[in-house]
C-alpha cells in the first residue's frame, strides 16, 4: 500500500515536472525520423533507439529526482514515516518504467505496429528501465551536484553499452552474455522478430540478477545516506 502511494506520488511529480509532455514531443520527433529510415535498417535502428532512450531514461531522470529530493530535505520527512528504503526505490523504478513503457510504445506503434513478441518486449523495457533507474540513483547518491551526477552516471553506464558493438556486428565476444544490456537487446528485439523461450529466459534471468546487484548497491548507498543508528540499533527511518 505504501509502495502504491509512493508510486502515485512519483507519477504526479513526474507529470508536474513535464516528463510526459517532453517525452511526447521527443517521441513524435523520433517517429518522424524513423519514417525516413529504409525498411531494411528500421528494425535495428528501432531496437537501438528504444534501448538508448525510452528504456534508459531512468538513468538521467531518477538521479535528478534523487538529487532534488535530497537537496530540498524531503527525505528528512519521508523517512521519518514508516516508508521503507526498498519501497522508496521500488516506487521510483515502477513510475519511471511506466514512462519508459509509454514512450517505447508511442514510438513503436506508429512505426512498426504491435511488437511481434509483446510480452518479451514489454519485459525488456520494464527490466531495462529498472536497471538503469537503479544505476542513476546509485550515481546520484555519490554526487553533490547535478553536473557531477551526469559524469558519474555516464561513467557507470558506459560499460553496459558494450554489447551494442556485438549487436552492430562490430566486435563479438561470448562475454557479452554476462552483461544485462545483452539481455535488454535480446528482449527489445522481440519487437521485430519472434524470440525463443531459451533466449527470453536467459535475457530475463541476466537482467533480474543485475537488478538484484545494482538494487542492493543502491540500497546500501541510500541506507548510508539516510539511516542513523539509534542506541546501537539500526532502523529504517530517521
Amino acid at each position: 500500500m505504501k509502495t502504491w502511494k509512493l508510486f502515485i506520488f512519483d507519477m504526479r511529480f513526474q507529470w508536474k515536472q513535464r516528463f510526459y509532455v517532453v517525452y511526447l514531443f521527443v517521441c513524435s520527433v523520433y517517429v518522424g525520423i524513423l519514417h525516413a529510415i529504409p525498411d531494411s535498417r528500421l528494425g535495428k535502428v528501432l531496437v537501438l533507439l528504444t534501448f538508448s532512450d525510452p528504456s534508459a531514461l531512468g538513468l538521467l531522470l531518477a538521479g535528478g529526482i534523487v538529487l532534488l529530493e535530497r537537496g530540498q530535505g524531503i527525505w528528512n520527512s519521508l523517512f521519518a514515516t514508516p516508508v521503507k528504503l526498498w519501497e522508496y526505490l521500488l516506487a521510483k523504478c515502477l513510475s519511471l518504467s511506466l514512462l519508459s513503457l509509454a514512450a517505447a510504445f508511442a514510438i513503436h506503434l506508429p512505426v512498426s505496429g504491435w511488437p511481434v513478441s509483446p510480452l518479451y518486449f514489454t519485459l525488456g523495457i520494464v527490466l531495462t528501465s529498472f536497471f538503469f533507474t537503479l544505476i542513476g540513483i546509485a550515481a546520484a547518491l555519490g554526487s553533490h551536484s547535478i553536473n557531477g551526477f551526469l559524469i558519474r552516471s555516464q561513467a557507470y553506464a558506459l560499460v553496459f553499452v558494450l554489447p551494442v558493438l556485438g549487436y552492430l556486428n562490430v566486435f563479438d565476444t561470448p562475454l557479452y552474455m554476462l552483461f544485462p544490456s545483452q539481455g535488454s537487446l535480446l528482449l527489445l528485439s522481440g519487437s521485430v522478430h519472434l524470440l525463443s523461450h531459451e533466449d527470453g529466459g536467459y535475457a530475463i534471468a541476466v537482467l533480474v540478477v543485475w537488478i538484484g546487484i545494482v538494487g542492493s548497491l543502491a540500497m546500501r548507498l541510500l541506507s548510508a545516506t539516510v539511516r542513523n543508528t539509534d542506541g546501537g540499533r539500526r532502523h529504517e527511518q530517521i
Partner: peptide, 19 residues
C-alpha cells in the same frame, strides 16, 4: 525549468536541435 529535474527533462529538447 523550475528546478534541476525539469532542467534534465528539458535538456532532452535541446538535443533535438541537432535536427
Amino acid at each position: 525549468a523550475a528546478n534541476k529535474v525539469e532542467g534534465l527533462a528539458l535538456s532532452k529538447l535541446i538535443s533535438l536541435t541537432l535536427l
